[in-house]
């Protein structure tokens, strides 16, 4: 146990070295949201009333169940979801370790590769949140008017937190499994790029998945990508009906179990296939 604690601590220190640069970089990441706000305003504006005026008959326009303000709030919440589920460099790192033989270390030493990487990633994320919370809080404070319903009820917040944690784990095991492909193919970078493209679109990072035409939406809903961005945001904004929430969470847990198994199996098979030479 103390071994794992040391690993966690070292990784934390490693990540906190460049905190100023980090905080600024995080703030910059919100810049594209400005464009999104104006784009969606223009879109809603051309359909009809952007906001419903109190006392008048005119109803505010909704697209895919989202009003203008909710749409902006959606993009903001997906930023949080992505902060949990995105795993920069994980798959390519594993593939690189396989290629240059560094993976031998984990075969000799009594450390489990996946466990080590997971802890490293947790430490990375913790350090990231410790620094990024300030820019995130600033932006969310400035944008508080876009959250029309205010804070969601407590059970929704619990579900939201659980979906973020599961989103993190699904992201981790999914990308680690992709990295394991490195045991079979030496070069996975172009494959990774294709995966990133798809996940950008299918996770709901680009736009809420409920905007998709019905046939495609039900198909995309069946895929696991939505847990990386769309699902947590939809929970937070109350777009998942309360009676469906437990089932949806259970399905997410099943997907998580599925990816843990896939990742473990791929690693076990890969190690069997692997032959390390020299030292």
């Amino acid at each position: 146990m103390s071994l794992w604690w040391t690993i966690l601590q070292t990784a934390l220190e490693e990540r906190l070295v460049y905190r100023g640069d980090f905080a600024l970089g995080t703030l910059m990441r919100f810049l594209p949201i400005i464009t999104q706000i104006f784009l969606w305003y223009a879109i809603f504006d051309s359909i009809g009333a952007v906001e419903s005026k109190p006392g008048s008959e005119i109803q505010a326009v909704q697209i895919g169940g989202f009003g203008f303000r909710e749409m902006v709030a959606y993009y903001l919440v997906t930023m949080i979801a992505r902060a949990f589920s995105s795993m920069p460099g994980l798959a390519s790192g594993i593939a690189l370790q396989i290629r240059d033989g560094e993976i031998k270390r984990y075969l000799i030493q009594p450390i489990d590769l996946i466990g080590f990487l997971l802890l490293n990633r947790i430490a990375h994320k913790l350090a990231y949140y410790a620094v990024a919370i300030a820019p995130f809080a600033l932006v969310f404070f400035l944008c508080r008017d876009y959250f029309v319903d205010g804070w969601p009820p407590i059970h929704v917040l619990v579900a939201f937190t659980a979906s973020l944690v599961m989103g993190f784990l699904i992201g981790f095991f999914l990308e680690a499994a992709i990295g394991m492909i490195g045991f079979w193919f030496l070069e996975v970078s172009s494959l990774l790029f294709v995966y990133m493209l798809f996940s950008f679109f299918l996770s709901g990072h680009m736009f809420p998945l409920s905007l998709l035409p019905d046939g495609i939406e039900s198909f995309v809903n069946f895929l696991p990508f939505k847990y990386l961005a769309y699902f947590p945001a939809a929970i937070f904004l109350g777009k998942i009906p309360a009676e469906e929430l437990p089932t949806e969470m259970a399905i997410e847990a099943l997907w998580l179990a599925f990816f843990i198994i896939v990742c473990r199996t791929a690693y076990a098979r890969g190690v069997n296939r692997y032959s390390g030479y020299g030292g």
Partner: peptide, 14 residues
């Protein structure tokens, strides 16, 4: 993405 937008709106901006 843009095709989806034009499913809902006729123009970008009134």
């Amino acid at each position: 993405f843009y095709l989806i937008i034009f499913q809902y709106a006729d123009t970008i901006g009134e």
